[in-house]
Simulated assay, not measured.
Amino acid sequence: MRARIEQQILLIHQDDVPQYKKNGSVVRNSYFWALKAIAAQTNRFRDWEYDSEVWLALQRMLLAFTESSYLNLRETQLEFPAEYDIPAILKPVATWE
């Protein structure tokens, strides 16, 4: 998931967040609701925002969904631009584009 940080807010690109589908996979829908539950702002037409206070929870959640092997790595890993210094708390679940 493409990500960036602005003023201590983690932003996940709107096209990369999971979508809720009424008759979709239970795992994908659970992932959607879990990400939505800890987000500061979610909007269908904007990037999702996460305050720094929830980064540890986000990291643990992304690790849990990654370890489940139901979702592919591109769906559970944060991808930062090459010039970014990834915060230590997010390094276990992040890489560079």
Rank of each mutant, 00 (worst) to 15 (best):
M1I: 15
R2F: 12
A3N: 05
A3Q: 08
R4F: 10
Q7R: 14
Q7G: 15
Q7S: 15
Q8D: 08
L11R: 10
H13E: 15
H13D: 15
Q14V: 14
D16G: 10
D16Y: 13
V17C: 01
V17Y: 05
K21A: 14
K22S: 12
G24F: 08
G24M: 08
S25P: 06
V27S: 02
R28H: 07
N29D: 07
F32P: 06
W33I: 06
L35D: 01
L35V: 05
K36Y: 11
K36V: 04
K36M: 06
A37P: 09
I38G: 09
A39P: 11
A40R: 12
A40N: 13
Q41Y: 06
Q41K: 02
N43P: 06
N43Q: 11
R44I: 12
R44F: 15
R46N: 07
R46D: 07
R46I: 06
W48K: 10
E49N: 03
D51M: 02
S52M: 04
E53D: 06
L56S: 03
L58Q: 03
L58F: 02
Q59H: 02
Q59W: 01
M61N: 03
L62Q: 07
L63D: 13
A64D: 01
A64P: 01
E67G: 07
E67R: 08
S68D: 06
Y70C: 09
N72I: 10
L73N: 15
L73M: 13
E75G: 14
Q77E: 12
Q77G: 12
L78Q: 00
E79Y: 14
F80E: 10
F80T: 08
P81H: 03
Y84W: 14
D85M: 02
P87N: 00
L90M: 00
L90E: 01
L90G: 03
P92V: 00
V93E: 01
A94S: 03
W96K: 05
E97A: 10
